[in-house]
Design a binder for these strands. Structure first.
Lengths: 268, 268
DNA sequence: TGTCGTGATCTGTGATCACAGTTAGGTTGG
DNA sequence: CCAACCTAACTGTGATCACAGATCACGACA
């Protein structure tokens, strides 16, 4: 790739061009590590109960522990991770009560987002959502089902919907909820890909898309809530949730979680 | 206070006593700084646009900059603070659109919390809320009105209500919203205490309390939403919000915000 | 054989130092 | 007198070091 070097001063013709460009991201290392950990969490690649070590994560990502500290501190503030006093930092194990609360909040908040999306979505946004829906349908009904791909497509579908609501803070709220619910929801979907073939998710998605096209907020909300409720019912039935008592002193801790994620994620 | 020294071994009768004590908080320095800054933000003692310096805050609080970094990083993750690339960290100036979105989200989320509280609140919790309501009424209708006290009583009232919903994650969500809206809402209330005497807040509070006692979720939600909407309408009318364009490069920045807060908050 | 003490190792937390980038103020040249 | 430069002080970011506390495995005592 020996393309001729672009001279560094092609700016003079339009003095307003430099003022129009938004201030560039200036993404810091801590931001990158945060994004990496968030992606791992929502994708279910970090299992509930899995322990992380600042130094290990730093080594795996090729950075010092400082950016990792910042990232873990942020995620712990959202209780997407929890730092045990002297021990280590681990992915929280939700109790059944916590999972129930999370599901109820998702029904309210994401349902509201679906209503707003049905009102405000542009045709392009609806088309993008439809593309995600098709991708999810293909990956989920393949043989064997592509679990990781379906999880990603499902996430893209939902957040394309939420973005269409045109309420940035609302999207952030939902991301926080997904950070907490992601480990169980998607770890399970990854472990039991055949659930994808049940078709309930696909039916809900189709109904949602239909409601979007008809600009029917109530039906869109209902379809999305059905999607959430059915996935949650499956999780609650399968188990994997923590005991009802939260503090969980020395109760169990015995169940060794599968150790996937960090050391498999390669350099940077 | 020279009470006789309690001998140090009154434990043998109940060997389970040591197991019953919950794990002690182990509050870290970063947590304390975070709590301090959060309190300043929701109380409106840090004005929108006010710039903070990690080293200044650290010096004012008598700690190193490390805990302050952690606290600022957490709050910036909630966009309760924003870190300008090379400049400094400052309290965000909400645009009108952002404030409108925040208000709509508060109507949805806090309204839902009010419904749940009306269903689940115990008599003790209702009594506590009533106490806050009385305190707010007294402080707001005093001559001159005690703005700072009324702000605190208002916060206690609202969060006593939200706690009564018995949904911890919901309370966290609401706290995040208050973190963003607090600077404008309460800075204004502090600057113009006579608004308190308008009585609209007191009427909404009274209606809310009445609905709680009658266990009427819909009326409780309506009363709370009226409270939120009226305060928001006042803010939108008074101004003080940022321009409609978010990036706001070199547009203004001229308005020097009042510099209150950090240096007045004493040691530790 | 079972249980408790004990030390090596690892944990997160906090402090200090180093650095690139920006800001602000003072000075110089027009 | 105004504008441009230039320097000194300050910004957040990252790295490295130091430390108290917790974990875990090994070994001694009962």
């Amino acid at each position: 790739m020996i393309a001729p070097v672009q001279p560094l001063a092609p700016e003079p013709p339009r003095p307003s061009a430099i003022a129009a460009v938004g201030l560039l991201p200036r993404e810091t290392l801590g931001d990158r590590v945060t994004a990496e950990l968030r992606a791992l969490l929502v994708a279910g690649r970090l299992a509930p109960g899995e322990k992380l070590s600042l130094r290990r994560v730093a080594e795996a990502l090729g950075v010092s522990i400082m950016p990792v500290r910042e990232a873990v501190s942020r995620l712990a503030a959202d209780s997407a991770l929890e730092v045990l006093p002297g021990r280590a930092v681990r992915v929280p194990v939700l109790t059944q009560a916590q999972f129930r609360e999370l599901t109820r909040l998702r029904l309210v908040v994401e349902g509201f987002a679906a209503e707003e999306a049905a009102r405000n979505a542009t045709q392009e946004q609806i088309a993008a959502i439809a593309a995600c829906e098709a991708r999810f349908r293909d990956l989920a009904s393949a043989e064997p089902p592509d679990a990781a791909g379906a999880v990603a497509a499902n996430r893209d579908l939902h957040f394309a919907l939420y973005e269409a609501a045109a309420m940035p803070t609302l999207v952030e709220m939902i991301e926080r909820l997904w950070l907490k619910a992601g480990p169980i929801l998607n770890l399970d979907m990854r472990d039991e890909p055949r659930r994808l073939k049940g078709g309930s998710a696909m039916q809900a998605h189709a109904a949602l898309l239909d409601a979007l096209r008809r600009r029917d907020p109530v039906q869109a909300r209902d379809a999305l809530q059905r999607d959430i409720a059915e996935a949650a019912a499956h999780i609650a039935a399968i188990g994997r949730l923590g005991p009802e008592s939260e503090p969980g002193r020395s109760t169990d801790e015995a169940r060794r979680p599968p150790h996937i994620g960090i050391e498999t994620m390669g350099e940077r």
